[in-house]
Design a protein around this nucleic acid. Sequence first.
DNA 1: GTCTATAAGTTGATAGAC
DNA 2: GTCTATCAACTTATAGAC
Lengths: 201, 201
Amino acid sequence: MARTTGSHSQKTGPRVTQSAQRLFAQYGYAAVSMRQIAAEVGVQVGALYNYTPDKQSLLFTLMQEHMSGLLAAWKIHQGPENSTALRGLLAFVDCHLRYHLPRSEAVFIAYMELRNLTAENFDHIEKMRKSYEDALEAIIKKGMATGEFKVADSKIVTLAIIGMLKEVSTWYRPDGRLTEAALIERYQTMACQLVGAGAEP
Amino acid sequence: MARTTGSHSQKTGPRVTQSAQRLFAQYGYAAVSMRQIAAEVGVQVGALYNYTPDKQSLLFTLMQEHMSGLLAAWKIHQGPENSTALRGLLAFVDCHLRYHLPRSEAVFIAYMELRNLTAENFDHIEKMRKSYEDALEAIIKKGMATGEFKVADSKIVTLAIIGMLKEVSTWYRPDGRLTEAALIERYQTMACQLVGAGAEP
DNA sequence: GTCTATAAGTTGATAGAC
DNA sequence: GTCTATCAACTTATAGAC
């Protein structure tokens, strides 16, 4: 299994992705050069093109995998179809925060770099974002139908909850005042207040 | 009052600012070149430097004026010191949305371009942002003290309300389904729900 | 105040040696 | 798989003519 001198293909690939993620999150896609990424990985710039066809693909892959992971997490986490809307809402808040809080770099990129995607890459990501939003709105509408929730406008409340949850990623630190569990509980309470649901079960 | 050929100083200055604002909002600070701004203004690149010492100042001025305007708007809008916390909260939501909704470009820049500020420029803007956040938290704490609000954690609720309000700027369009007044009312209601206040007065 | 020309450096991406 | 060398195009900012 002798390899060519200097071959590290089992390691360099992931390192390229990780370095791109870190640098894009810190400085922004447009402000980061391929040479900076190469330096972070520890190779020369030409070597990067063994792992990505171009800079744009690096960004798209990061965002696409982040959103796929989020939708997959929700699919697993949402539980049975016949549960109550209240349980669905609590699960959504729980799932959202558990997925986002340990992924601050990917979250930052996902929200900040949409405009640096090419048109077709943007459409792809936007569809995924929309389907996530729709998952929450479906819960709200269900709760309105069953009478569990008292909501004037499902669209506005959906966006308000999403906004409230997104904001957490801008300040949360793992070593902060609140544990993750305590934080989730507070946001579950606030989500319930926004939909006019009594308390937690 | 004869002017030098090609002199348009009374017009070019504002146009530089406006063009920078539009382009930074659309493509991001790092992705926009001074040549692009010049082209949008309708001058050659050298002429821009009659109006700004450098590109960074263009960004800083835009953000600084946006935040100054916001704080000034709140100073006017907040009303008498001895009013109720509930009135204060309603005024805050009203003021926030009325200021932000017609300024989508400046809002976008203010939230997206913080990391492209130099360290000292960032500190300056961050202080202003913090004082705005503090204004809301003061209202929440007052309501907790008077018993108007039932809130477990003033910091978290402050951030949740800010997050909910910020999110509006990502989708609001003046020609949308809801009038500005109707929108404000819905967000006032949701803010009241988050602080555990009864209804609007 | 605006222009053109220029400085000095960076960019994304490719070709070919090893 | 990685390197070096290279490309053409682009970057911010300045100098000096008009």
